[in-house]
Nucleic acid binder design. Structure first.
Lengths: 141, 141
DNA sequence: ATATTTGTTACCCTAAAAGAAACAATTCCG
DNA sequence: CGGAATTGTTTCTTTTAGGGTAACAAATAT
């Protein structure tokens, strides 16, 4: 499993871990255990979440992480943006063939299509909050 | 540029090339010129489009490709499905940590979220047809 | 028959992303 | 003050998905 980008998914997992309620604050090692990834990688993602203001971290001895605000006030879009996950689809890049009208006009068109689709995707992400996610986890177990 | 999946984008390019109207039928080499990829790779994608019934191909000498139906009757979703492009986001896989409720319930939850988001994404793809795409290209040049 | 084209396979190369380790920066606590 | 523990950041390695390319089988027009 690699050469995809799973940081969005992992970030949701981390946030759910922090919001679940076992304990209010956890260390990167605690979280790494739940995700089954190495603490260093977890910290890289946590750092992004912290910079985005979704997580409050404390350095130093007995340093921990906790949610910066209520789970109901955090949407999946917040998390998606925090980790700077890839777009919904990738566009091939190529040197335009000047003789071919499709080749010349394609970039402009596909950028427009991607923008529309991306916006629509992000709109749907706003409809689910971290609280919904946590509730669904509790329901499923 | 690699380790992304650009086949959806390339497939749209190919379909636009076929539907643009320069000529009704083109060879994989013609199309490869427009996309600026090697003919072999283009054929791999064309083959998928053909199997999905979006493109009609003819083998042998003076073999060609053409759209199997009107551009207005082909949506972006048809193309997306034909090339079996990746989902809107990837989910990390990991062995569940039995002690942790989040770890145990996460998979179920994230699959559900992905399904919802994916369906919504695909719904928006149905709203754009190949004819729209071609028109947009013509407008842009 | 021959030439030309699609269809398919196989292999290589590249780049993205995860895994891991190291170390700096910070802070608690004795 | 000093040591221990934790986050933050960098660096390097490893893995792997996917594009690039070539080769060749299958098909068909001439």
């Amino acid at each position: 499993m690699s050469a995809n980008n799973t940081q969005f998914s992992i970030a949701i997992h981390l946030m759910a871990g922090l919001g679940y309620g076992v304990r209010a604050d956890l260390t990167s090692t605690d979280l790494a255990g739940s995700v089954n990834a190495c603490p260093s990688f977890v910290r890289r993602i946590l750092s992004k979440l912290s910079k985005a203001g979704l997580v409050r971290t404390m350095r130093g001895k007995s340093g921990t992480c906790q949610l910066a605000r209520a789970a109901g006030d955090i949407t999946l879009l917040d998390i998606y943006e925090a980790v700077d996950a890839p777009k919904v689809f990738a566009v091939h890049s190529y040197p335009a063939q000047n003789l071919c009208p499709v080749s010349c006009g394609f970039k402009h068109m596909i950028d427009k299509v991607l923008e529309n689709v991306q916006l629509s995707f992000e709109e749907t992400l706003t409809k689910t909050t971290l609280a919904d996610v946590i509730e669904e986890i509790k329901k499923g177990t």
